[in-house]
């Protein structure tokens, strides 16, 4: 496959997945912000979310305070923010347009319609009571794209690079969502218990559609360690790090080619640390430290995928 085609397919999927995850992240932050708890900083959650997304500098340059209205706008409809849902959907659609010949027409039409609807929402704006509906819409459109991909596309490298983009992006997001809660909201991991805490964990689980999964898996009260285990190490959890890396690892092996050895080795390393990890070790090490290291290695793997498949210099 052409490197440029693979690049577009990968970023088409990553962008759509990012739109969905941004919606999830905003949703959980919004829910958390509704739970009043004593904090010196009234915009604590929103500040946390910006810093974990790495977008706080851009935000601070253009918005006076990180309150709900501002951050919501910045992350949903702000066309100047490259990470906004608006731009993620735009990027997904533009990448799809560039490889329209490689994907099925159903896939293209779904993404194109998503973009046209996004334009309409952009022009009309989102009322405060419409924000949940908007998040639901983003998730639905993402589910639809993924479903059509799964239901219509030939299982060749086109399919693999799309799936690679999906799971690669998702792993990044799951790590960040967990980190928001852990690192910022609860600096001390021992500071648990109480009704407020229950709702906070509940909100976090719901943001990755894992509340019911948690109940099924543990059949017990919600504890930070188990939530972390679910997010990081449980292979039966749809959005956990290990589930994402299982997919990424398998896909990279299937894409296999004359130049894949180093990518496969590096991915295997990261995959192995999750596969054979135990939650107690991670907690001993410090969850935030663990997640930071994961994000760094994950980023480096992405960089290597980029250089190997998309931007190799052959001349």
């Amino acid at each position: 496959m052409l490197s440029s085609t693979a690049d577009h397919l990968y970023w088409m999927a990553r962008s759509m997945e990012r739109a969905e995850n941004t919606a999830r992240m905003l949703d959980v932050t919004y829910r958390l912000s509704l739970l009043k708890h004593a904090s010196a900083d009234p915009h604590h959650e929103w500040r946390a979310m910006l810093s974990i997304s790495g977008l706080h500098e851009d935000f601070e340059a253009r918005y006076p305070i990180p309150n709900a209205v501002n951050v919501m706008h910045f992350m949903t409809l702000d066309e100047k923010n490259p990470g906004s849902i608006y731009n993620s959907i735009f990027n997904a659609r533009e990448n799809a347009r560039a490889v329209r010949g490689s994907i099925t027409s159903e896939m293209w039409e779904a993404l194109n319609i998503t973009w046209l609807e996004m334009r309409k929402i952009y022009q009309e704006g989102i009322a405060e009571d419409g924000i949940s509906r908007f998040f639901d819409w983003v998730k639905e459109r993402s589910h639809l794209s993924r479903g059509i991909t799964h239901g219509t596309l030939l299982r060749d490298d086109t399919f693999r690079f799309i799936r690679l983009g999906t799971f690669f992006e998702r792993a990044d997001n799951t790590a960040r969502i967990l980190d928001v809660k852990y690192h910022i909201l609860l600096p001390s991991a021992d500071d648990v218990g109480g009704a407020a805490d229950y709702y906070q964990w509940g909100a976090l689980l719901r943001s990755v559609s894992a509340f019911e999964s948690y109940r099924k898996v543990y059949r017990d009260q919600i504890t930070p360690k188990r939530v972390a285990e679910l997010f990081v190490l449980r292979p039966d959890m749809a959005r956990s790090l290990i589930t994402c890396l299982n997919e990424v690892n398998r896909l990279l092996q299937e894409i296999n080619g004359p130049r894949s050895a180093e990518v496969i080795r590096r991915c295997g390393q990261l995959h192995g640390s999750l596969r054979y990890g135990v939650i107690d070790d991670i907690f001993d090490h410090g969850l935030h430290e663990y997640l930071s290291e994961f994000l760094e290695q994950h980023y480096n793997l992405g960089d290597l995928i980029n250089k190997t498949y998309f931007w190799s210099t052959d001349e």
Partner: peptide, 13 residues
Amino acid sequence: RDETVYMRTTQGP
């Protein structure tokens, strides 16, 4: 390269 045209692919030139 060497008066030959190649396309960049995920599997190399």
